[in-house]
Computed example of a mutant assay.
Amino acid sequence: MGNTPEELLELVVRTADDRQAKDIIAIDMREISILTDYNVIAHASNKRLINAIADSIVEAATKAGIEVKSIEGKQSRDWILIDLGDVIFHVFDEEERSRYRLESLWTEAPTVDITDWMNE
């Protein structure tokens, strides 16, 4: 898993969900951005969980042989961004997510149905 952009997206979503990320949304950026194929946005209930989710994403990507291009926000832990190339993962605390509303920046981009990758 993790060789195609779609497989990487699944890896990121499954990992975030397994670590109790909330309200995970995947946005298909292929038609509107040259920077990435997908943006994944989630939040967590506290700063320790935000950090644990981010660490798990990095660990899963590394195990799958995916290069982590950059990690931003590790010091603040209110918003951590992980650039995996084909997928950019954002994890916020709930207040910061509400403040920045990244989902509203890309309203023309379709969301990806990720329900099959999520625990119930």
Rank of each mutant, 00 (worst) to 15 (best):
residue 103 E to Y: 04
residue 115 T to H: 10
residue 86 D to Q: 04
residue 42 A to Y: 12
residue 16 A to F: 08
residue 59 E to H: 13
residue 57 I to K: 03
residue 64 A to I: 08
residue 95 E to N: 11
residue 2 G to Q: 00
residue 8 L to C: 03
residue 17 D to T: 05
residue 4 T to H: 09
residue 81 L to D: 03
residue 18 D to W: 09
residue 102 L to T: 06
residue 69 K to W: 02
residue 19 R to T: 09
residue 26 A to P: 03
residue 82 I to Q: 05
residue 109 A to E: 12
residue 75 Q to C: 06
residue 111 T to G: 09
residue 112 V to E: 01
residue 41 I to T: 05
residue 64 A to Q: 05
residue 118 M to G: 01
residue 20 Q to G: 02
residue 29 M to F: 13
residue 15 T to G: 07
residue 48 R to S: 09
residue 23 D to M: 15
residue 39 N to F: 15
residue 98 S to N: 11
residue 110 P to M: 04
residue 41 I to G: 00
residue 36 T to D: 02
residue 38 Y to T: 09
residue 29 M to N: 06
residue 72 E to C: 10
residue 45 S to G: 13
residue 19 R to S: 15
residue 27 I to T: 08
residue 9 L to W: 06
residue 23 D to E: 12
residue 77 R to G: 05
residue 91 V to H: 07
residue 94 E to S: 10
residue 8 L to I: 09
residue 60 A to G: 08
residue 36 T to H: 08
residue 14 R to C: 07
residue 80 I to E: 01
residue 71 I to N: 06
residue 47 K to Q: 10
residue 109 A to H: 04
residue 99 R to M: 07
residue 66 I to E: 05
residue 10 E to T: 06
residue 74 K to N: 14
residue 17 D to W: 01
residue 92 F to R: 00
residue 89 F to E: 03
residue 106 W to S: 01
residue 24 I to W: 00
residue 89 F to G: 01
residue 38 Y to I: 00
residue 5 P to N: 04
residue 74 K to G: 12
residue 56 S to P: 06
residue 31 E to V: 04
residue 19 R to Y: 15
residue 32 I to F: 11
residue 45 S to L: 12
residue 101 R to S: 15
residue 116 D to V: 04
residue 13 V to A: 08
residue 39 N to D: 07
residue 109 A to Q: 03
residue 88 I to W: 08
residue 49 L to Q: 15
residue 54 A to D: 07
residue 117 W to F: 14
residue 50 I to H: 04
residue 85 G to S: 09
residue 101 R to A: 14
residue 10 E to D: 12
residue 76 S to D: 10
residue 95 E to S: 07
residue 12 V to P: 03
residue 117 W to E: 01
residue 7 E to K: 06
residue 25 I to L: 11
residue 91 V to G: 04
residue 28 D to C: 02
residue 20 Q to E: 14
residue 95 E to I: 11
residue 92 F to N: 01
residue 97 R to K: 05
residue 118 M to Y: 08
residue 17 D to M: 02
residue 111 T to R: 11
residue 54 A to S: 14
residue 89 F to P: 00
residue 88 I to Y: 02
residue 99 R to C: 00
residue 103 E to Q: 09
residue 59 E to I: 14
residue 71 I to L: 14
residue 33 S to H: 01
residue 30 R to G: 13
residue 107 T to L: 14
residue 28 D to V: 05
residue 24 I to Q: 02
residue 83 D to W: 07
residue 54 A to N: 03
residue 102 L to N: 09
residue 90 H to P: 07
residue 22 K to Q: 14
residue 114 I to Y: 05
residue 9 L to R: 07
residue 49 L to H: 15
residue 46 N to G: 09
residue 3 N to Y: 15
residue 23 D to S: 14
residue 34 I to S: 06
residue 97 R to M: 01
residue 42 A to N: 09
residue 34 I to Y: 00
residue 120 E to H: 12
residue 17 D to E: 00
residue 28 D to S: 02
residue 33 S to N: 04
residue 30 R to S: 15
residue 80 I to N: 07
residue 79 W to I: 03
residue 22 K to I: 14
residue 104 S to T: 15
residue 90 H to D: 11
residue 72 E to W: 07
residue 113 D to M: 05
residue 43 H to M: 09
residue 49 L to I: 14
residue 3 N to S: 15
residue 83 D to V: 00
residue 104 S to Y: 10
residue 118 M to W: 01
